[in-house]
Amino acid sequence: MDWELLLAIFPQVVMDGLVLGFMYALIALGYTMVYGVLELINFAHSEIFMVGGFVGVEILLTMQATGWLDTFNPFVILIFIILMGMAVSGVLAVVVERVAYRPLRGAPRLIPLISAIGVSFFLQDLVRLGESLWRNAFYLTYPSFAAFNTRIEIAETIDFSVKSVIVVVASLAMLFALQFLVTRTKLGKAIRAVAEDQPTASLMGVNVNRIISLTFLIGGAMGGAAGVLFGVQYNTINPFTGFIPGIKAFTAAVLGGIGNIPGAMVGGLVLGLLEAFAASYLSLLTGGAFGAEYKDIFAFSILIVILIFRPRGLLGEVVRERT
C-alpha cells in the first residue's frame, strides 16, 4: 500500500470533507428545526435547497447576459446571490408549509410525510418545466469567477481553492448567527418553547402558527444558502440535484440527534468528513476494487448503524416516544 500517497492527499481530503460537511450542516438545520417543532421529516427540504441553487444560477446568468458580472466585485455578487437564494427559498418553504402541511396538522404521522413527498416531486418537475421553457435546458452551469478558482498555497503540496474557503467561512458565519438567534433572543426562546410543548407555549402567549412559519423561513433560508454555495462549489445544478444531498443531510441530522441544532452541525461535519475519506481512500485501501461510487452506500450504512445502536444520535437527548 502506498502510505506516502495516503499521507500526501490527507489535507486535501480533510478540506473536501469540511466543505461537504458544512454544506450538509446547513441543509440539516432545515430538517432538524422542522422536526423539532412538527415531528415531520420535511421531505421537500431537498427541493428548497435545489431552488436556492437555481436562484443563484439564474441571477448570475442574467448578470452575465447584461455584462454586469465583470463590473461588480465578485464577493459583492456572491453575497447578493446568497441573500437572494435565502430569501426565495425561505419564502418558498413558508408557502409549502402553509399549503401542504398546515391543513394536515393533527393527522396521523404518515399523512403529512406523504404530502411532503408529493411537494418534493411537484417542485422538481415545476423547476424542470420552468427552466426548460425559459432557457431550453435544465442542467445549468454556474459562470466561473477567476477570483474564486485561484488556489491558496499553504505548504508545498497543500493548497485550497478560494471557493472552498468561502463555503467554510460563509457556513460558519450562518451557523453562529443561527445559534445566537435560537439561544440568545426572545424569538429563539419562542421557537424552543414551541418545539418543547405546543399547547403550553400557546398558553404562554406564543403565537404557535407564526413560530412554525418562522421555523420554515429560517430552515428554508439556510437550505437556500446551501444551494447557492453548492452551485458555486460544484458548478452544475439540475432539478434533481437536491435528492442525494437532502438524504445525506437528513442522515446528518439523525446522526447528530434530530431536533437538536448543534447536533445537526456536528452530524453534518462528521458525515462530510467520513464521506470524503470513504471517497478518497476506499479505492486505495481495497486496491481499486471498490471505488468512490460506494460512498453513498457508506453514508446509508452509517445511518442504519446509528439508528440501530444510538437512535437518539450523537448529541440527542432521550425523546419522549410519541405514536
Partner: peptide
C-alpha cells in the same frame, strides 16, 4: 435490523435501502 425504528425513521431507511440496491 430496522423494524424497531419509529415510523418516519423506517421510511428514510427503506429509502436508503432502495438507493443502495440501485447503486
Amino acid at each position: 435490523p430496522v423494524l424497531r425504528l419509529r415510523g418516519d425513521y423506517l421510511a428514510i431507511v427503506t429509502l436508503g435501502f432502495g438507493e443502495v440496491v440501485r447503486v
